[in-house]
Design a protein around this nucleic acid. Structure first.
Lengths: 204, 204
DNA sequence: TTTCTTACTTGACACCATGTCAAGTTGACA
DNA sequence: TGTCAACTTGACATGGTGTCAAGTAAGAAA
């Protein structure tokens, strides 16, 4: 268990560092952002960063947590849990997470790029994926409960598939590489996930 | 224009380097493979690598070409072009490319990891994606010709979507992270791409 | 006022990987 | 015998991370 402290209140320079990291990462250059760049934007010396974070990986991880806090991801995902049917929940979850991706994309990129070679960074990212997967799993479970889950996939498989459809690289491919709008992305992933998971024509 | 020489014949050490790179990259550690590791496996000095390749990026790129040559990707993709209907071609292409992914996965990972920060590596990888996209586009065009393309997507959008479904990260998510078998992967992507692109029930 | 503490600064340095350079060595071939 | 190509060895520049030691500025406590 861990105590989460509102980072906005105390530790003003720590917050300044996190905001600097966030803004640099958001402006594109995922893994090209150096510690010295962050220090410069935060208005402190490079070495002072290490008074607040033991290394680059932890700084990036702390930045994702900071963004989660500011963007209130927990609340947003919780809202998707209100849906009563599996189908509704699927759509709600796709929307909630799909719309969160662009907000963490910068940090995600940096964290993923760090992954091979940094155990801690990989773990941190896996944790996050785990949280998404959990949301996927409960949407899938609800579909199964409703008898709406496609026949050829068990719940685990269906969860794998949904989590993969909702992965960052897919968002990146469509919205970054191919220039899709966020709403087109959401609409298509929603449609695709329904095609993938929902049993066709159960009533006919 | 560029002359492609069968690398297997002449240049024995060059080939040894490429094979060493390939085997190291295949054994997992994508971006953790150092030039010195490659040299050691190839049985030459680290500096001698630079007598054959100007830098790491070019070595990786040459390695993908070497694999293409050995694995005959061109022939395999060409075979998928024999299909007469859009639907058959879609399946054939999914199979051809989907089964090629695991064979280049190691190098792909290293090349992608190099991407941010190395213009040349990014370009090389983009070229490859371009080739895949081209295959996707002609499958989509054939579907459209047959009147089988789903109504709400134009050909460009459909191509984007198919190329994304066939991207390396999706294979990685399913087959690496979640342990799917290659045949399950192919079956599911085939089904998913048909669900995504083919107009439902055109005859009823 | 003096002293102590905390947060920061400066500058130097070790580490590690890439890539470069210069000066050998070795073997084949003429 | 000489020459050339392929390779070796050792040294070094570069650029980033992370560490260390000594110094400074400001506020709280005595």
């Amino acid at each position: 268990m861990q105590l989460y402290i509102m980072s906005s209140e105390k530790n003003p320079t720590r917050t300044r560092i996190l905001k600097a990291t966030w803004s640099l990462l958001d402006s594109g250059g995922g893994s090209r952002v150096r510690m010295s760049d962050i220090a410069k934007v935060a208005g402190i010396s490079r070495q002072a960063l290490y008074l607040h974070f033991p290394n680059r990986a932890e700084l990036l991880i702390a930045t994702t947590r900071h963004i989660d806090e500011v963007k209130k991801i927990d609340d947003r995902l919780a809202a998707s849990r209100a849906a009563q049917t599996g189908r509704a929940r699927l759509t709600a979850f796709v929307e909630a997470w799909g719309n969160y991706i662009p907000e963490i994309y910068g940090v995600a990129t940096a964290l993923i790029a760090l992954g091979p070679g940094d155990e801690e960074a990989r773990t941190a990212w896996q944790d996050r994926l785990g949280a998404v997967r959990h949301g996927c799993a409960s949407a899938v479970a609800m579909l199964a409960r409703d008898g709406d889950l496609v026949a050829h996939l068990d719940e685990d498989r269906a969860t794998d598939l949904l989590a993969t459809l909702l992965s960052v690289p897919i968002w990146e491919g469509l919205c970054q590489a191919h220039g899709w709008s966020q709403s087109d992305y959401i609409a298509e992933i929603d449609r695709l996930s329904r095609a993938a998971l929902i049993r066709p024509d159960p009533t006919s």
